[in-house]
Amino acid sequence: MNIVSAIILTAALLMIIAGMFCLVRTYNLIRIIIAIELAMKAITLLLVFSGWVNGNLALAQTFVITMIVLEVIVAVVAAGIIVSLYRKNGNVDIRELTNLKG
């Protein structure tokens, strides 16, 4: 394994860890989505890296493009839900989401 691959994998892992850390650390709904986006960056990197490794970069790029489209739509839906929640609750605090208990 060459050094660049090692650094790429490390960077991807660090981004995922940053995302997970952010996910459990925040009360803010928007920041939760930012955390997920951070993790998705790492996944993008991993996908291109895998194409780079096995020489099938063209295929890897098509994956990345499809994935980016999906990512955007998820972000838009999430933002829409957050804005609607803000209109109901007056804030974007996860501690306010207590209507569902069992």
């Binding site: 995922i16 790492a42 996944i43 991993l46 996908l47 895998s50 194409g51 096995n54 890897a60 994956f63």
Partner: peptide, 9 residues
């Protein structure tokens, strides 16, 4: 997706 990337390598 991460697991797919690893398998794809």
């Amino acid at each position: 997706l991460g697991s797919l990337a690893l398998i794809f390598t």
